[in-house]
Nucleic acid binder design. Sequence first.
DNA 1: GGAATTTGACCGTA
DNA 2: TACGGTCAAATTCC
Length: 286
Amino acid sequence: MASPRPKRESIDFEDPRAQEAMGSASASYSPPGAIFGLSPPDSSPRDNRKRRKDRPSWVKHTFTPHFDGHLWRKYGQKNIKDSAFPRLYYRCSYREDKRCLASKLVQQENCDDPPLFKVTYTYEHSCNTAPVPTPDVVAQLPPPPASGDSSLFVRFDSTGAAHSHSHGDTHRAMMMEQERQRHYQSLPAPAWPSMMLSFDSSSSPSHHHEHHPAFLSAELPPAASSSTSSSLFSTEAGLPAPSTTTTDGGDRFSTWDSLRYGLNDHVQFGDHVYLPDSGNAGDDHY
DNA sequence: GGAATTTGACCGTA
DNA sequence: TACGGTCAAATTCC
């Protein structure tokens, strides 16, 4: 059993589509000196891995790290030095199907109830499978802002119940998550005042705003700032691009959870820290 | 049986 | 050289 592993199959990370997907967005918020240009295909899979420093990433804090509207597959878990909690590694389920480079690291940060998680996203989704809401959530992005107005439109169904048609453990995890969230709902909203992102009533037709604390994960990847990227990446705030389709009918787990409970005290793109209520999300600050 | 997760090893980065 | 990210075989789940 101690025989050395065979050399791994090479995964073509240098697919032009992936490069295109990264394209302007990654460059727009790259740290100084970073180059996101993809290197030529390499002989070793590991060589294909971009230097960690150079990889586009952004951070968010949330209580529901598993529900951001995308389908993730866990590929690793690691205990981190000086951390009481293991770090979980996920990548997009469409990684191989659509050469999607998106991945995320989830790390619990405390033992609070609910516990807070730090989620580090790396690369945008190039799979073109934007977060797909269930019929319970209807969300849409307005047309690309012509005058800098980047208001979002989110409408909740009257029930707010999460649609459960996902498969496997995702479904189970979702049910558990819902269980937890029922608990959260009983908590007073001001429990995390600095983490609340309220919809502006003028920009949201949601009459449920007053019934459900308008917790919104402002998980906006840098590309969301691009007016041309709506079809590529609608927004990880759980807002799907209207025209985006999924390979299996889009019956993913509901983004409702992350919309409602994906609390976010800030979103950090590299050195840039975004405050959800500052109204700058979606602007071209990168 | 297929898909997802777990887990230990490998290896790049700092 | 320690740490952290990823791989992939083994295991588990459905």
